[in-house]
Write a protein that binds this DNA or RNA. Structure first.
Lengths: 111, 111
DNA sequence: TGATAATACCTAGATTACCTATGTATATCC
DNA sequence: GGATATACATAGGTAATCTAGGTATTATCA
């Protein structure tokens, strides 16, 4: 297991909601976009992403819509829902709290 | 599962190594100390901490030594090893890289 | 004195969200 | 026509958390 893998737990959903809050995207695009924006750091595996999107959809946080391209290829675009937006706000807050606590331990201001 | 739980994965070991790099501690003390220093945020469960300490010991990153108090009570103090110190340096670096990547996604500088 | 809380260690089993590996299919490039 | 990129999907393995339970000693307080 790569080191990131464990750190990813708990943040993967936030990353997905964050991306989709900016614009609808399809799975393959999400993988590429996360890699691009993180300067190569995030490389979501398909076995991670697709089940994650399905879980988010089942939870009503995103909605997938198939779109047929002129080429005949199918893509499933995921849109964030209102519930997803609210969850993102909460996730962001949780992340900030976690960060604050981490900083108190791993970068003690003074002792 | 509380929201922290998932975020904890991958950082729990770093937190433990970080604490123990400052001074040897015993399990119960670690729980209390993490809670105190994080202003109540981190509340390690015993079922999380003790197995984690045992894993760290098995990996040669820490070493536990029983100490008998005058009262007759036994405590197991964990000391960080040289290998543990080196691991801590690496963990800190991994954490910083992860943070940097997260910030690129969840707080885009400009797009 | 006796009950309760705090201290101090431990483990078993459930859960969950990653990963690897694999499958299918189309499009593009040389 | 063969390799690579695009595009979705699932099955099963793994690992680290949690819940829940156990044992035992010490301190507090009614």
């Amino acid at each position: 297991m790569v080191p990131q893998a464990k750190l990813m737990k708990g943040t993967a959903n936030s990353l997905l909601l964050c991306l989709l809050s900016q614009q609808p995207m399809y799975g393959y695009q999400i993988i590429k976009e996360l890699e691009r924006r993180s300067a190569g750091y995030f490389r979501f595996k398909e076995g991670t992403l697709y089940p994650a999107l399905h879980r988010l959809e089942k939870a009503g946080l995103v909605m997938g819509r198939w779109r047929l391209l002129p080429s005949g290829r199918q893509r499933k675009y995921y849109h964030i829902t209102d519930k997803g937006h609210r969850m993102l706000v909460e996730k962001r807050s949780q992340w900030q709290n976690f960060l604050a606590a981490m900083n108190l331990i791993i970068e003690p201001a003074s002792n």
